[in-house]
Nucleic acid binder design. Structure first.
Lengths: 341, 341
DNA sequence: TTGTAGGCGTTATCAC
DNA sequence: GTGATAACGCCTACAA
């Protein structure tokens, strides 16, 4: 069943059928209805490949992420997919893990399918070191690159992110103002975002006129599991590091901190206050629930997609869209209003 | 840069270039090398749309799910995506929610992109009522339909699932054999899988020579949140329903049950034992951790993709692949070996 | 408002 | 082993 069959059955030319399909208004009402009826009767759908060949697009945007089984990423992708679909585009998904070689390959594969744009998901997907991101800058030649929760400057590269430095700073300040003096900071990756958060942590101490105790900065391996991270805290404690609160780079680490507290017989928030990052559903699964930095994921995703769509149609768009975070108070901190189950 | 340019620059025909690109061995070594060099020099890549038009495939499989932000689904999709990519196919993702109209539309959209196969993810995606699934049977005309964690019989429809009835039965039996007599069952959807689980719950009581108290079967709304589900248990308790343990249809409900216990001042597992379903990462985030039914998600996904690939190349394949589950013991139950943090 | 015809870039089928 | 050339199905000037 091709456009040619339809044109025959409805006694018009293929051009007219094409016009009807594409909603051109240069078709008489009578003709349109006649053709539409034949199309409906035959259950005809245009061949997407032929159309792609002519138009040089299949209306698809590629999404690249390290690991979709991560709750934060899957939440992001859930938002993105919905927005993208509403714009009449499809989503090609590629999960590459963190290995650079695979990230490159994933992007190339997406480009080889002539996607109309690429979205990089995950604060840890874009490296702090600019040279590491060269492959993205090159790719931007072929399609717009959208960086969600990361920063990268380049032609045809657009970033949508939360001010992570300010966010971690205010989380740390919150604890300092609650009277805590030994705020630990836990993090994993060396992404741009991760380093910004660390800066924010330091800034909070500096602004308070206090100096930073470097032993309070606890780094876990890139692939650390919950037990690994608990172990990290245990070891720090065993080595004499004293901390009365923890700020973490992601919620998963906050869960680990909570479980560490439980295993060490510490009461939360009395003995240990904990603040996570991302305000993911995980925060509502624990007891007590976890205070976390809401980095406005929905807004980020919405802006990301709408910016991309405008770029695709050739509109000038801001290279950076920056949102502010918000501290969502729950039971793992003691001061202020508490939202808990 | 087209295949024609390459043919000119290397002084051969487009046919030969095409042969080289596609690894045909009917090309002399000399010619091949010459062409390969030109291709490399020009950085030429074949136009994917033109190729799609000729071959009538773009090597893409569609994945359909209700909600990728659900940890279980995102884990499944993570596994599936990896396997699919290893087979040289790309993944087109569509999250449709549970509304039937949208599920239909999602499938149609995927089919209109001429995907080589469709995978339905999620035990609650395929309905118990066969007539509700008619749209899938029709679609099977155009591409193989793979049902992950659900059952549906039809031409070109393949199912890969865990024996949910047996799984829930053994979870319930486990509690009965621990001496519990008031095992509640919590569930949400009316999917095939969900009904099978309920059957398993009933069967456990029957096999033990006990009768089922229908008030112990607690149904939550399709879209119930954790607080909603906690409320469901509270209400049941308030209405005089006595239960000493809970089996749930998904882990999220087990989290809710745990939080209910906490709010009601019940000790877990002493006053209330809890068993979840799916063995998702959530189970390791709570205190105590949650005993859950492992339904062998990785194996399901692996088999699903390898079956699909074989179907695509025309091999005869089993219409049903059934796996057995396993109860993973953690701190929310009291008997036997406990894996906990 | 409608029709004709050429082009999009590959692959496949023939001959040679 | 290689080269012409005809599909593949749609879109879109350009003509009428």
């Amino acid at each position: 069943m091709t456009i040619y069959d339809i044109s025959q059955k409805s006694g018009v030319s293929t051009a007219t059928v094409s016009r009807v399909i594409n909603g051109s208004n240069a078709v008489s009402k009578r003709t349109r209805e006649k053709v539409l009826k034949v199309i409906a009767d035959c259950g005809y759908t245009p061949n997407i490949f032929a159309r792609g060949l002519g138009l040089n697009t299949m209306r698809v945007v590629g999404i690249l992420c390290a690991d979709i089984s991560d709750p934060f990423m899957s939440q992001a992708i859930s938002f993105l997919e919905k927005e993208i679909r509403e714009q009449g585009y499809d989503v090609l998904l590629s999960c590459t893990g963190m290995e650079m070689k695979n990230r490159r390959k994933g992007l190339d594969l997406l480009l080889s399918k002539n996607v109309d744009g690429v979205i990089f998901v995950g604060s840890n997907y874009v490296e702090a070191e600019r040279s590491e991101n060269a492959y993205i800058l090159e790719a931007a030649d072929k399609a717009p690159m959208m960086i969600l929760n990361g920063r990268l400057d380049g032609d045809n590269v657009y970033c949508v992110y939360c001010d992570d430095k300010a966010a971690t700073m205010s989380a740390t300040v919150w604890l300092l103002e609650s009277g805590r003096r030994r705020v630990a900071y836990m993090f994993q990756s060396h992404s741009y975002s991760s380093l910004k958060k660390l800066e924010g942590y330091r800034q909070a101490y500096l602004n308070a006129g206090l100096s930073v105790d470097e032993t309070l900065i606890i780094e876990c391996g890139e692939e650390a599991s919950i037990p690994d991270m608990m172990e990290g805290l245990s070891q720090a404690a065993a080595q004499g590091v004293v901390f009365d609160s923890v700020v973490t780079a992601v919620d998963g680490m906050a869960v680990a901190a909570l479980k560490y507290a439980h295993s060490a017989g510490l009461e939360v928030p009395g003995d240990l206050e904990i603040i996570g990052f991302n305000n993911s559903p995980l925060c509502a699964c624990t007891e007590p629930e976890i205070t976390s930095v809401d980095n406005k994921l929905y807004s980020l995703c919405h802006t990301c997609v709408s910016t991309l769509m405008r770029v695709i149609v050739g509109e000038e768009q801001p290279k950076h869209s920056v949102f502010s975070s918000e501290l969502i108070l729950r039971g793992s901190t003691s001061r202020g209003k508490v939202i808990d189950g």
